[in-house]
Design a protein around this nucleic acid. Structure first.
Lengths: 127, 127
DNA sequence: TTTGATGCAAATCATTTGCATGGGT
DNA sequence: ACCCATGCAAATGATTTGCATCAAA
């Protein structure tokens, strides 16, 4: 049987806080934002709900350094990270002509997904 | 003036421990290995020397989850991570014609490097 | 001798977890 | 009522850092 999914105010508020974010916030950042609506929410609950959303495929996780960033844009896309200001930009893959034919090390390997990250300098930091 | 580079036994031993590794060891794993040669070395020193090697471009860092893995293979290559056993495989890029060209979000962005990671199931885990 | 490198332990940072209580269903 | 979700605080895991001492140069 499927696990009971429970509709709580906290989960709803966490989702509302991130669903339209394009800034790839950290859990802590989401916590601050959510606190404005539900001041008594705990950081642990924010983490638990973010995990839940990730498990459901409603969020994607991007690890930068040691910190997780959450990203509601789930359709296939890549990231551009500015080495100067650390800002993460989404790169949508409209022109899929850019997804490449992969060659895997040996026979017997199956590729299910991939992640492409570009590093460089963004517009703002190019001075 | 260039910073004084000091040749220590610890740095040498850390390098020796990792220079031919293909298993993408963590700092802790390197620590264990190095201890066999210099039992009194401290974990902090291992971290400091790994950082040093990374700064010099002799090692590459690969972050999996919250943990850094170190990789002496510095020539351009990608990674294949098995979702089942978490093993990291190197994929060398002989034909570099294989990722570029990139389309960046807007004008004014400069791409210096990129990282491509493939996820899937490796030979051993395919049963 | 000078001062960067080390060993040790305590500190930090992000995240997770145990447990008693609260609130969906 | 059942039992998942929450709040709180303590625990964890990886990495970093302060400081006195050591050892390359």
């Amino acid at each position: 049987m499927a696990k009971a999914r429970r509709q709580t105010r906290q989960l709803e508020v966490v989702w509302d806080a991130i669903k339209d974010e394009t800034s790839h916030p950290t859990a802590d950042r989401v916590y601050e934002k959510v606190r404005e609506v539900v001041p008594k929410i705990s950081l642990g609950t924010v983490y638990r709900n973010l995990q839940k959303l990730v498990a459901e495929g409603r969020l994607q996780v991007l690890t930068l350094g040691r910190t997780q960033h959450f990203d509601p844009l789930v359709r296939s896309h890549h990231h551009f990270i500015c080495r100067s200001c650390q800002t993460v930009y989404d790169i949508s893959v409209d022109s899929k002509d850019y997804v490449l034919p992969f060659t895997v090390p040996e026979q017997g390997f199956t590729v299910n997904s991939h992640e492409l990250t570009l590093y460089g300098t963004c517009k703002n930091c190019s001075t």
